[in-house]
């Protein structure tokens, strides 16, 4: 890339909320990939998490040095969660989820949920609201 080229960064994106979906993700499915697959199932390209709660076998949260912290269960309960799903040009939804989890003594830990490393224990309930940027029609 030449030094004169710049990458276009969208800082603000106007749009509107679209459909609302609720899913129950079954045991041993990954939380992050489960949310991504839910978007594939429902045809959501972009979405915000409107609510989520459930339990994980063990939780894996990213740390600032690039490692991860594993909180041992079962079960580790997800007690707060926020996040979004964005799809690139290839149409593949990518979920970015962060939150607070509680271990079997009620002690809490927080950070980003690592994709592939947060298997659901009993159930995970998630509500997504579709985000439709201006100029894009829903899938």
């Amino acid at each position: 890339m030449s030094t004169t080229e710049t990458t276009r960064v969208v800082i603000t994106e106007s749009g509107r909320m679209g459909r609302v979906a609720y899913a129950r993700i079954a045991p041993n499915e990954d939380l992050v990939q489960g949310v991504e697959k839910m978007c594939l199932a429902e045809g959501f390209r972009n979405a915000f998490v409107r609510g989520g709660l459930g339990s994980l076998v063990d939780a894996s949260l990213g740390t600032r040095d690039g490692g991860y912290q594993q909180i041992s269960g079962p079960a580790v309960e997800v007690v707060s969660i926020a996040g979004e799903v964005r799809s690139g040009a290839d149409g593949v939804p990518v979920a970015s989820l962060a939150g607070i989890v509680a271990d079997t003594d009620g002690n809490v830990y927080g950070g980003p949920f690592l994709a592939g490393w947060n298997p659901v224990c009993m159930t995970f309930e998630v509500t997504l609201e579709e985000w439709i940027p201006d100029g894009e029609e829903p899938a």
Binding site: G18, A21, K37, A41
Partner: peptide, 9 residues
């Protein structure tokens, strides 16, 4: 994954 949706919230 058992999911359902509606056209708006």
């Amino acid at each position: 994954i058992q999911s359902m949706h509606y056209q708006s919230g």
